[in-house]
Nucleic acid binder design. Sequence first.
DNA 1: CATATGTCCTGAGAGC
DNA 2: TGCTCTCAGGACATAT
Length: 281
Amino acid sequence: MPELPEVETMVRGIRPFVEGRTIRDLIECPCPCKPLNYRPQFSEIEARVKGQGIKAVRRRAKRAILELENGDALVIEPRMTGLLLLSDPPDPGHLRLEWKLSGKRQFNSLWFWDRRGLGTVTLYENNEYQALIAEGYLGRDALEMLAADWSERVEKSRRAIKVLLLDQSVAAGIGNLYASEILHVSRIHPETPANILSRVQIKRLAEAVKDILETAILHEGSTLSDGTYRNALNQSGGYQNAHKVYDRAGETCLTCGVGVIERIVQTQRSTFFCAKCQRKK
DNA sequence: CATATGTCCTGAGAGC
DNA sequence: TGCTCTCAGGACATAT
């Protein structure tokens, strides 16, 4: 499930081979599955990006962005199972898109692969792209959040802190997996109402968000047991080996060695935590 | 306004 | 073995 670290890894992986090149062609791969979500429709995207240079490759929250010469931006949301690839896909049956790139280099195509097809591809005109990049519709990037920003956001909500961490308008980029890991390291119970967190807890939360996301980026993200997530060269990430709670229900806590990891459901999403390390206040 | 729920999609795994 | 059912969750639309 590509969250901030996985999308950052994709972006870093493709950037050296994509920036500065021109999109010679954008092709929909033959795939028996339902088509991706395009906006506007594919034929219009195709017509508008063909021949455009790729000025920069960027990330905004969990989205990867190809900034084009003319000011438009092609925004790719991998959502659950989408991958940007320079080489072989995990399986050829779910290739969705191919960008044919100008010039002859080590890689001459960029691919979008998506097993479940929940991913989206959206062409933004410059003005709406600027709104996407700005804070507002999406919150500040989670890597840029300071303790003071968290304080301000947290005190306004009675929602459970785990639920708040997933709200992309509060802080952008944290998903279900990293939310559990962050709260574990912060020693905060996931059901704690956001507005009763202490100053000390907020400080720990702010530090854990940066620490976990940055470390996960260094390990090129998390490849779960389904093996879906891969970097741009179709290699597994490594951060799953550092997970302390995610998908470990019933196992002894690796932090305290005493508690047993529990699984609860909050707003229809699994949350994992150790009740001994993360006491309810 | 704040918060909660339903929907999209496919494949893996459980249970019979 | 082969069927049906449930579950996984990111982002958004719709409901409360």
